Amino acid sequence: MSKLKNKTAFVTGGSRGIGAGIVKELATQGANVIFTYLSSDQKAKELVDLIESLGVKGKAIKADTGNKQDIESAIRSATELGKIDILVNNAGLFINGAVDDESINIEEMEKQWNVNVLGVAHTVRSILPLMNDGGRIISIGSTGASRSPYPGLGDYSATKAALAAYTRSWARDLGGRNITVNIIQPGLINTDMNPSDGPFSEHMLQAVALGRYGQPKDIGLAVAFLASDDAQYITGTTLNVDGGQSA
């Protein structure tokens, strides 16, 4: 498949889990892919090797999405491969806790907001002057933005709801440049942080129409679709990739 041939993608938080699934699929469909990561040098290197084995260019940049200087430096480094066609905002933090839990670490909650919301907003603003007209901006949200299946999700869900609101507004802002802006909201996806054989997986699957976990590749396929010409008239849209969990 080469629907994204000669395109260049920049993915935040791309070394593992859903991010790695996105990076692999974009590269499989022909895009050159630069991604940021925070901690795993070895996994990042292995992913770059995989990208390049597919005949496209790959680059990993160590950067904290919640740090303004890190993001600006990463974007400057990314554009060594040329202008950006596709931006995927995947990096995020998940910190839960009920509103009446006095043990909650407020500093960690603020960091979550900095990464999940302010970091995304700064990434978009920084990359727009370096993005080709007709580009694609795709953010990874959460079905928690519109439903709360269990207690303690308020702070995290609020960050993802803010990201969905940004998506709708940015679609209006950037329509004149033919840049589409969309958000994907994953459901239960099999990752290290939320394994399909985890202690609560059987209970959580009761809400999923398809009765199984999704895979990172499922999110990668959705991202690749929204990044392609097949989705050129789709913008300001929320796409749930959740096996019917939100049905």
Rank of each mutant, 00 (worst) to 15 (best):
I71P: 06
Q69T: 15
D133K: 10
I106H: 04
D155V: 12
A161I: 07
P129G: 08
N89Q: 10
D101Q: 11
L81E: 01
N96Y: 07
K160F: 14
R136L: 07
D100E: 14
S126Q: 13
K68W: 04
A164F: 12
G134S: 03
S157F: 11
N89V: 11
N116V: 11
P149Y: 08
I140E: 02
Y156G: 04
K68A: 11
I137A: 01
D133S: 09
G119D: 05
I106Y: 10
L118T: 14
L153F: 10
S126H: 09
S139L: 02
P129Y: 11
N132V: 13
S157A: 15
G92D: 10
Y150M: 01
N96W: 05
E80Y: 00
A145R: 11
N116A: 06
T123E: 03
A165D: 07
A165T: 14
N89S: 15
L93V: 14
L130P: 03
E108P: 02
A121M: 15
S148Q: 09
Y166E: 09
E80L: 05
G97A: 07
A91V: 04
D70G: 05
H122E: 06
W113V: 13
T143D: 02
E80I: 02
G154W: 01
H122V: 07
K111C: 02
D85Y: 10
N116L: 08
N105I: 03
A164W: 12
S146C: 01
M109S: 09
L93R: 03
D101I: 13
G152Y: 14
I137M: 01
L128F: 07
V115Y: 00
A161C: 05
E110T: 06
G134I: 11
T79S: 08
M131N: 06
A98Y: 00
P129K: 12
L163W: 02
I127P: 01
E110V: 09
S142R: 12
T143E: 06
A158Q: 06
G144I: 13
V117H: 04
D70E: 02
S103W: 00
S148M: 08
R76T: 13
L130F: 05
G119I: 06
A158D: 01
L87C: 04
K160P: 13
L163V: 15
G152S: 15
A161T: 13
G141D: 12
I95L: 14
D100C: 03
G144H: 12
